[in-house]
Design a protein around this nucleic acid. Structure first.
Length: 883
RNA sequence: GGGCGCGUAGCUCAGUGGGAGAGCGCUCGCUUCACACGCGAGAGGUCGCAGGUUCGAAACCCGCCGCGCCCACCA
């Protein structure tokens, strides 16, 4: 197919379709992008000239939700913008094995078949998860493609793939050898739901009202103590009573022995600073095995640890025959009933307090003593704190910086082992004979100490342990790969704030520790999109909105635009209107291009492919639009670079609607009329300018709305794919402040005249005879006449003004338009309008005059402000005069 | 308990020291030869409340009221 037939077919297609059909165009465009290889950059010699982002890896079996769609849109704007700027741009893609979430999904599926994982056995279960992954794992990646995300799909990673596992083992061993990873019997957040320990960050506190019981314990040798508790069932595990050492009331108690009711255990009374003297009775039961504070107190005083709650959330044999096997809540009732029988409950009152729940399973956390692996964080944190303090890592918006620094300053050890089957098994090997512990990147054949049989640790690592390595493990670390050399560190990490500690902080720590450099120089924290009613978007609440459905309905461009436009530095409610605004923009742009090309095509002697690439502005409106185009180019670039996506999107909208379509296209329509007076040369120049403006507009809109712009780029005869095209840099030499001023005045005049027409009920088709007596319209009088539907009998400055008497006058900047015929006009209405206008003007004048009469204002305000007020006053007075 | 943030038009949100804005909705008028997912013109706001700083406050400071989020081991 030669060029001219191709273009005539395109013209025919444009003529036929008055509207854009995103559902038809978009999927086809994705295929063209993927086939082009544009999303896969070749590694370079060094990091220079490259731009990279590591995607926050979605859960492998997940599906796209609004958060993904927003963050995907944000990152894709950055990626496409920098790719167009000519950088080797890589968006690192992959998925997370998501230990608990994925395992839970598969367990649920198994449960439907009536199987539980223990019956299946570890090996078979893990195999089932891999099957599951191969079945559902590709889904979310396909959904990112549909969004238009220009990730490097050719190098997709998985946090459990072979290379990644090597990186994880390497890191674990290194930290173990430094002594920062260790094993300890410690009180942990036990989640009975997942039957695993979880980290502090996965615990969520909920306010609940429970009963606070006061219970009387006897003292050996007479007397009593009264303790208060909301968890009477844990008293079965009490091993001491504590009071504050400075509490005068209880000085004599310290050293004595209390008798634990129901059990009979002897409890020493100890003194500890932790106990508050002004809270409760000042006498505290100590249960080291089931309360984190008591655990610490127990360690300080060398107290026994008695465990009465098991990993299944039920009472153990240690709790005694009467209670063993009961759930915690049942045990609570039973214990209170038993205490009541002995008359030991001296008070009960409702008590509001916070209760820990598992973020993973939703079940109540049981603090338990358990043998787990921990990671010491303070030494890792120090350089990560410095990186943010010194600006090596910049957090945007800045208020999150303090949140990060505060948390890092108080960082505590991280429980990294999980009693799950799906994940990175710890590279720890125990000898069955000599009980030696070996930590190594690969399994030893036999025990290096005694030659005995070794057995690998059953536990797996917290998913976030592997996620923490994401920016470099995905690029081939620990090997020194070309990818690592070329794309590490990445430029920016974009995410919602909920994983600032869970993930971002840990990546910074691990990145610095293992590569010597922070994994990114900027962290952008984006909005959380809430449901339209302000609640959290969630499946369980039924408040979720599926981005893919929205994409089907409105197009990916519309959804991208909408999400970007509604995002800000704070949480926002989902706005269907913004998505519709995006759809309208895409359609508007399509029609603007459609207009330009259809009109250019019908111009005799004008051939699209022959047109000059540079604009040839011939008139003031041409110079105006070209100048405005430079402004929006600079504005958009600045806003993208400062992560101000909502203003970037809206500024694009304003330019396309407000300047390009509402004004420029309307202004030049007549010059394209075939029965007009324009010469072929003039038409050619106009066509070149129009084409230039359209191409540039489409190019600068590309990062935000890539689909429609890619499609239009083809129609406009652009070279290659727009996704691989170049970003339209603002050219200062094309700025034209004079043209901008002239057009601003003309636009205001036209708007005023249209308003006046409306007020006198002039029919749209009525051409009103008028005389323009005003300055600054030499270049725009004919445009004003046409757009305000006037017949200007004698343009401004003409000496031969007809001496007709005006029937009305309309004030415009710099003068007046005198209306010469009342035919078809309701001038009475105009009077009322003028009256209202006069009142408004007078009020403004009064205010400015009062300001200027204020000596303080004139004396203290900047001269420039005073001057501006004076000019304003003069202008307002002139306007009132003219009325 | 500590921290962060928010309260501006009917709705969702911009604006952060010198004339109150946008989108949607609403009213009126238009099948104007790119687009009715359109075009033109409008109505609508004591900028949460009360003080203060300033010549000047929606914006800066203090307090109060209301709402949201994060962190936190007081039974």
């Amino acid at each position: 197919m030669d060029e001219s037939t191709q273009s005539s077919e395109q013209i025919a297609r444009l003529r036929e379709h008055t509207r854009l059909h995103p559902a038809e165009v978009e999927p086809r465009t994705v295929e063209r992008w993927l086939a082009s290889g544009l999303f896969h950059p070749e590694p370079g010699e060094s990091r220079e000239g490259a731009y990279s982002i590591a995607i926050p890896p979605p859960n492998v079996t997940g599906t796209l939700h609004m958060g993904h769609a927003l963050n995907g849109s944000i990152q894709d704007v950055l990626i496409r913008y920098h790719r167009m700027k000519g950088l080797r741009t890589k968006w690192i893609l992959g998925t997370d094995h998501a230990g608990i979430a994925t395992q839970a999904q598969v367990e649920k599926a198994l449960a439907a078949e009536g199987v539980n994982r223990r019956e299946l056995g570890r090996e078979a279960f893990v195999e089932r998860v891999w099957d599951w992954r191969s079945h559902y794992g590709g889904q979310i990646v396909e959904q990112f493609k549909r969004l238009g995300a220009s990730c490097d799909y050719t190098e997709e990673r998985f946090t459990l793939d072979e290379g990644y596992a090597r990186a994880v083992a390497e890191v674990f061993v290194a930290l173990y050898e430094k002594g920062w990873i260790y094993r300890d019997r410690y009180i942990v957040n036990w989640d009975p739901g997942t039957r695993s320990a979880i980290s502090d960050l996965e615990v969520e506190e909920r306010e609940e009202t429970d009963t606070l019981y006061s219970i009387v314990y006897d003292l050996e040798g007479g007397g009593t103590v009264t303790i208060a508790t909301v968890r009477p069932e844990t008293m079965l595990a009490d091993t001491a009573i504590a009071v504050n050492p400075h509490d005068e009331r209880y000085k004599d108690l310290v050293g004595r022995t209390a008798i634990l009711p129901l059990v009979g255990r002897h409890l020493p009374v100890v003194a500890d600073e932790y106990v508050k003297t002004d809270f409760g009775t000042g006498q505290l039961k100590i249960t080291p095995a089931h309360d984190p504070n008591d655990f610490e107190i127990g360690r300080r005083h060398g107290l026994d640890q008695v465990s009465v709650i098991g990993e299944d959330g039920r009472m153990t044999a240690e709790a005694g025959e009467e209670f063993a096997g009961l759930t915690v809540l049942e045990a609570r009732e039973a214990v209170i009933a038993a205490l009541d029988r002995e008359g030991r409950v001296s008070a009960r009152e409702p008590y509001l307090h916070s209760v820990p729940y598992s973020h993973r399973s939703g079940q109540r956390i049981e603090p338990l003593i358990s043998l787990q692996w921990f990671m010491k964080m303070d030494e890792l944190a120090a350089p990560a704190i410095a990186a943010v303090q010194e600006g090596a890592v910049r957090i945007v918006p800045e208020n999150h910086r303090k949140v990060y620094l505060d948390w890092m300053a108080e960082i505590r050890p991280w429980c990294i082992s999980r009693q799950l089957w799906w994940g990175h098994r710890l590279p720890v090997y125990y000898c069955e004979d000599c009980r030696a512990v070996h930590v190594a990147t690969s399994a030893p054949e036999s025990c290096p100490s005694c030659g005995g049989q070794v057995r690998q640790e059953e536990d797996v690592l917290d998913t976030w342990f592997s996620s923490a390595l994401w920016p470099f493990a995905t690029l081939g670390w620990p090997d020194e790969t070309p990818q690592l050399r070329s794309f590490y560190p990445t430029d920016v990490l974009s995410t919602a704030r909920d994983i600032l500690f869970l993930w971002v902080a840990r990546m910074i720590m691990m990145g610095i520790e293992f590569t010597g450099r922070a994994p990114f120089s900027e962290v952008y924290i984006h909005s959380v999109i809430q449901a339209p009613d302000g609640r959290r978007m969630s499946k369980s609440l039924g408040t979720g909105i599926d981005p893919l459905q929205e994409i089907e309905k409105h197009g990916a461009d519309a959804v991208r635009f909408g999400l970007l436009a509604m995002s800000s530095s704070q949480d926002v409610r989902y706005s269907a209107e913004k998505v519709e605004q995006g759809q309208a923009l895409a359609n508007k742009l399509y029609n603007a291009v459609r207009f330009a090309l259809l009109r250019i095509a019908e111009q005799p002697g004008v051939e699209l492919s022959q047109l000059a690439a540079q604009p040839q502005p011939a008139t003031v409106e041409d110079r105006w639009i070209v100048s405005r185009l430079q402004r929006v180019k600079a504005d958009l670039a600045a806003r993208i670079e400062s992560y101000d996506f909502s203003h970037a999107a809206l500024s694009l909208y304003d330019f396309v609607y407000g300047e390009l379509c509402d004004w420029y296209i309307e202004l030049v329509k007549q010059r394209l009329d075939l029965d007009g007076q324009a010469s072929e040369q003039e038409r050619q120049a106009l066509a070149a300018t129009l084409l230039h403006v359209m191409r540039q507009t489409v190019a600068l809109a590309h990062p935000v709305i890539p689909f429609v712009t890619e499609e239009l780029w083809g129609y406009l005869g652009g070279q290659g794919l727009l996704a691989g095209g170049s970003w339209p840099q603002a050219q200062d030499d094309l700025l034209d402040p004079e043209a901008e001023q002239v057009l601003a005045r003309a636009i205001e005049a036209i708007t005023l005249l249209r308003g006046w027409r409306d007020s006198v009920s002039a029919k749209p088709g009525l051409i009103v005879p008028a005389r323009l007596i005003a300055e600054g319209y030499d270049a725009t009088a004919t445009l004003i006449a046409r757009l305000a539907r006037l017949d200007l009998v004698a343009p401004n400055g003409d000496g031969s003004i007809a001496e007709e008497q005006p029937v009305a006058a309309v004030t415009v900047p710099g003068g007046t338009v005198e209306v010469l015929s009342a035919e078809g006009l309701d001038l009475h209405a105009a009077q009322r309008r003028a009256q209202a206008q006069r009142q408004r003007l007078q009020a403004d004048i009064d205010r400015v005059q009062a300001k200027l009469a204020n000596g303080q204002f004139v004396a203290k305000a900047p001269a420039q402000v005073v001057q501006a007020e004076r000019e304003k006053l003069a202008r307002l007075q002139a306007e009132l005069e003219a009325l």
